[in-house]
Amino acid sequence: MTDELSSPTTLRVAVAGAGLGGLCLAQGLRQAGIDAGVYERDPAITARFQGYRLVLDPAGLAALRGCLPHRWHALLDAIVGDAYGERLVLDPQLNKIGELGPGRSGTVVDRHVLRHLLLTGLTVRTGAALTGYALLDDGRVEARFAHHDPVVADLLVGADGVGSAVRAVLSPRTTPTDTGVRFVIGRTPLTGQFAGLTRAFGSKIAGNGVSLLLGAMRFRTPPKQAAEELAPEVTLPDVGDYVRWAMILPPGGSAGGMSPQEAVLSRIEGWHPDLRALVEQSDPDNSTLLSIRVVEPRERWAPGPVTLLGDAVHATSPTGGNGANTALRDADLLRRCLTEGRENLVDAVGGYERQMFEYGAEAVRHSLGALPAFVPQPAG
């Protein structure tokens, strides 16, 4: 049985993907009185750990606030932290050997905590992997799923990441590019033992043919406590301050059959004891090897009842620090375009896409330009 519109005059949006961008859009549309359903391919919201530190720039933070209910703004301010760091290049014993250049001011947020905030009040159907869609004669779109009834909507938004199933149909010639760079990421509780690493936060530690990047997540208020005090209808994870670490491997590098944690430890023998302890004390379940792939928005399609958002159309290298920011900016822009132009959906979507293509392409270029400064050369 196909889900139908509840009313001929109700604008209905189907969002494929429950990442930050898709959830932010759904929250923004909800505030505007637009029906938005979210469909996630993962079997459960917590199927994959997504709890790493992100840096939001002023535009990304403003976009997020634009999509959240005003009553949650105080909570958002309480659960973030301040970005800081000297942006130095350090050797394995934490001696300064260079500088990375001027840093970005911003606000740090935990992805896991932010995702729980964005999930509040939304209906998300999990286990709903999109298999394709069809354009209907009345201008709407029918989205089809592997384990869910088809859904008819006025607009289908592909917010389903680098491997977007929506993009595969809408823009099949837009495909991900593998940069060949691999990195291991993990997190470790920020205890007093690591107070001496402050200089390394925001810096690059280079040696043995690898680069290690550290970033501190210090919450202004513990998230669970902040929600209980400021927005009791919101339930946030009980997490404490931590250090996010990421080791960038040389081109062609791999874990070599070892666990991600073991792969890092094998490459930092003889390094400063606090650095080794940081990796040793990390949660092995939350350490993983990832590839850096990008998607460049090139092919323009005719505006219609299907569009893309975030990594599905402009996936960036994490070294640019703009992936989440650009996805949030997409969400807020599409929210505003749909709210202001809901009487003419095609024009509203076209207006969104014109702007998104321009700044999305620039975000990808910027991230690729920043990548070489962080990629180590193989040890000779």
Rank of each mutant, 00 (worst) to 15 (best):
D57N: 08
K204C: 03
A32N: 10
G161S: 11
L265T: 13
L29T: 09
R293I: 05
R329H: 13
F219L: 05
W301G: 12
T123A: 08
A255R: 10
E280C: 01
V181K: 12
D241W: 05
L76F: 01
G321A: 02
A227D: 09
S317Q: 07
D311M: 09
R244P: 03
K96F: 00
T319V: 06
C67M: 03
E269G: 09
A331T: 14
Q281P: 01
H272C: 05
D238S: 13
T235A: 14
T2W: 04
A83H: 14
P378E: 00
T175W: 00
H116T: 09
T319E: 11
L290P: 01
G180E: 11
R329D: 06
L135V: 04
L230T: 02
R220V: 00
P172K: 08
S164V: 09
Y52N: 13
L11C: 00
Y359M: 12
R276Y: 13
V279F: 07
W72D: 14
A312R: 08
P8Y: 01
L135F: 00
G321W: 05
T288Y: 10
R218K: 15
L290F: 11
F357W: 10
V38G: 10
E4K: 00
V109K: 11
P297L: 13
H70D: 15
V109R: 08
L212F: 02
